[in-house]
Amino acid sequence: MTHPTLDPEIATALRGELITTVTQKPAAKSHTARNLIGATAVVLGVAVAIPLGVRMGGSSPNGGAPFPEVTTTAETSQDSGMSRAHIYNSLMELAGDSSLVVKVTASSSRGGTLGGASTDETRLEVAACFDVGGVVGTQPVFHQQATTGPDPCSPGDVVEVRTFRDYDIELQEGDTYLLFLKHTGLPQDPSTLYYVTGAVAGAYKEVSSGTYERSVTDVPDAIPLQLDNSDVA
């Protein structure tokens, strides 16, 4: 039996890349003033935050007092690039890597291709926008919010999500989802076009009022299978 090996030239180059990467490891993330504000938000969040399950679907208008960006774990933000392959250790980490957390209803989609792969770009109407206000215990606390996250967001907005047919979930017309979204990062794409953070990790489908189940369960991410009113901290 022949045993193929990695091409020696590639192996040598990759070895060098690895040594460089290891010896130039990024310094631990420092706490900026913004982080400190966020830490305050965590404390305040315990007192005033209304968690996801409570506010989701409620009729209260958006536009409450702006809430600072949440602090996240040091590992969360080390990589600011695409998050398609990242394996998340917590919902907090997933949220921290997302530029939008929204409740949406899928309306229509159109097919396309990217890099030779078949894609769908699905239009979704935003029903509610969320910021992550902090952590209570081990769970993040979500605040219904409009404009203080990385991306402006309001109910009634339309966002588009690109999914890969061979890999991702299919966002079904008429279904409602809680989605953690991140910009595609591709320069030719409009600012309203997103990927689901973590490919399939950040997609929860509403299965009953106020109950969201992760659309794909066979993932390595350590994130809840379900989000619902019981998540109230």
Partner: peptide, 17 residues
């Protein structure tokens, strides 16, 4: 996920022969 995974490391992968 190889196509998508490669986006994260595209710069490094492009340096490989």
């Amino acid at each position: 996920n190889v196509r998508r995974s490669s986006l994260r490391y595209r710069e490094m992968l492009d340096r490989l022969p």
